[in-house]
């Protein structure tokens, strides 16, 4: 994955609060077993409305999604993140996110940035007025620049996610560095911890 910073371009505005992952990725698409090709699935019901901003040709070219508070609440389905990425988004800016959605986004390389409520209200007003405004999200500086002249907004991106995104790391890769620590922990695990091996005494170690 090539690191792109800042993430600059136009934004799609979905200002409703509490957009849950059932809306972002309807369940029928969670029957798929691939990890790519979710661009047509994302917001599938919403896009049946021809007037939806998501059907505007500019939407597919917008790297930024500006969304209402509590975006991504509900189901843990990571398909929601894959759909947003496949559609073309690189970052979502919102006042608050669902916890699991945010963790999933960080792991999959979709940047999530929070803004203060009043800054969000100003951003919404601006994008309503002028939907073609260009924004630039600087992941390092944690700033969202608006248009050419307005002062940049302060945003927060979790430090661990900045590290993953900017360094091109995966969470699994970082965990694998701790193999010695994992082994050490396994040596200390209590013997009563269960395994799924039928008939084995609880906690019996398995040779590896």
């Amino acid at each position: 994955m090539t690191v792109r910073n800042p993430i600059a371009g136009t934004a799609v505005l979905l200002e409703a609060p509490n957009i849950d992952t059932d809306q972002i990725m309807p369940k029928q698409f969670c029957l798929r077993t691939d990890r790519v090709g979710y661009e047509d699935a994302v917001f599938h019901e919403w896009r049946k409305d021809r007037g939806s901003i998501l059907n505007d040709p500019r939407a597919r070219a917008s790297p930024l999604l500006v969304a209402g508070p509590n975006f991504g609440c509900g189901s843990s389905r990571e398909h929601a993140v894959w759909g947003l990425l496949d559609f073309g988004f690189r970052a979502v800016v919102a006042p608050r996110f669902g916890d699991i959605f945010r963790a999933n986004a960080g792991a999959a390389g979709l940047v999530t940035a929070t803004v203060e409520d009043d800054a969000f209200a100003a951003l919404v007003a601006l994008l309503r007025e002028n939907p073609g405004t260009r924004l630039a999200l600087d992941v390092v500086a944690q700033q969202l620049a608006i248009g050419a002249s307005a002062p940049a907004l302060r945003v927060r991106i979790p430090a661990f996610h900045r590290h993953l995104y900017l360094g091109g790391h995966t969470e699994t890769g970082l965990a694998l560095h701790h193999d010695a620590g994992i082994r050490e922990h396994e040596r200390r695990r209590p013997a009563w911890m269960p395994t799924t091996l039928d008939g084995a005494p609880a906690g019996a170690p398995r040779s590896t």
Partner: peptide
């Protein structure tokens, strides 16, 4: 706790997960 599919892959591979203490 609930995790996403990338994290499911990590737990399979390492039996660990990254998590911020709530």
């Amino acid at each position: 706790t609930g995790i996403g599919t990338t994290a499911v892959g990590q737990v399979l591979a390492t039996q660990t997960m990254w998590m911020v203490r709530p």
